[in-house]
């Protein structure tokens, strides 16, 4: 197994005492696989992704990448945040190359890699633009190129399109799907958008809320070449109804599905 999370628990200390956020999470991502975790707010899904990234530490349980336990953040697990988090004083090209610079890659090789990934995300002509000159969708493409330039073993995405308008979001989903097919990168993405999860992934973990735990693992048996018209097919809608029902059960317990 490529990325494996086993028996993961996370407690937070609050004034009311210990709060259980994640309960016995078991999941895995195989090489080249696109996996989504969907859950309502309060399912601890962002906490889960942050622990895989090494930005938070689990209370108990194990996270391994190619058998190596995760002990902190590293370039083998690229992360894309909802807020883009680009470096405002760097051009697009410098943003994309910054990870490589941090890792000590020499200049000619770095420039070549940057050009390659700018091309992958279709932003070659914006290499010398600054982030504030870009639209939200373009910013997120820069963030994706920056994470991919380090050629991570797995790309972690935390609601990457959550801040985009509906039209841009749809374009970006198609873009990400094509990019995944071309690069073969393993992706673990967190979202609360059920249709987005079905459209993009091969497997979906549906999480319960408070505490978050894996309620069901859904295998998405749709062709890997997908366009947005697939959302109208009965099979797609069947998956959507199944997952929405699962999330609704959670919300009956007093948690609102976003």
């Amino acid at each position: 197994m490529h990325l494996e999370v086993s028996h993961l628990y996370k407690h937070f200390s609050t004034r009311q005492g210990q709060l259980l956020v994640l309960k016995d999470i078991n999941l895995h991502v195989e090489t080249g696989e696109f996996v989504c975790a969907v859950g309502a707010s309060g399912s601890g899904k962002t906490t889960l992704l942050r622990m895989v990234a090494g930005l938070d530490t689990p209370t108990s349980g194990k996270i391994t990448v190619d058998g190596q336990p995760v002990i902190g953040p590293g370039a083998d697990r690229g992360m894309v945040f909802q807020s883009y988090s680009l470096y405002p004083w760097m051009t697009v090209a410098k943003n994309v190359g910054f990870g490589l610079k941090l890792q000590g890659m020499a200049m000619p090789l770095r420039a070549q890699r940057v050009a390659e990934y700018l091309d992958v995300v279709g932003l070659s002509q914006f290499a010398n633009a600054y982030p504030r000159e870009l639209s939200g969708g373009m910013k997120q493409r820069v963030a994706i190129a920056r994470a991919l330039a380090s050629q991570p073993k797995v790309l972690l995405m935390d609601e990457p399109f959550g801040a985009l308008d509906v039209q841009t979001k749809e374009t970006m989903q198609q873009f990400l799907l094509d990019l995944w097919r071309r690069t073969g990168t393993s992706i673990l993405m967190i979202t609360h958008d059920v249709e987005e999860a079905i459209f993009l992934s091969q497997r979906i973990y549906v999480l319960t809320a408070r505490p978050g735990s894996v309620q069901r693992e859904v295998f998405v048996d749709l062709p890997s070449e997908r366009t947005y018209t697939i959302k109208r097919q009965p099979l797609f809608q069947g998956y959507r109804d199944e997952i929405m029902d699962l999330l609704r059960e959670t919300s009956r317990l007093g948690v609102v599905v976003e």
Binding site: G74, A75, S85
Partner: peptide, 23 residues
């Protein structure tokens, strides 16, 4: 400074001294 900008740097392989001086 947004916390995520610092965390992004860690996930790009940045060390603490690089976060301090380069971010």
């Amino acid at each position: 400074i947004p916390q995520e900008l610092l965390e992004t740097t860690y996930t790009l392989g940045g060390q603490r001294h690089q976060v301090l001086f380069q971010v």
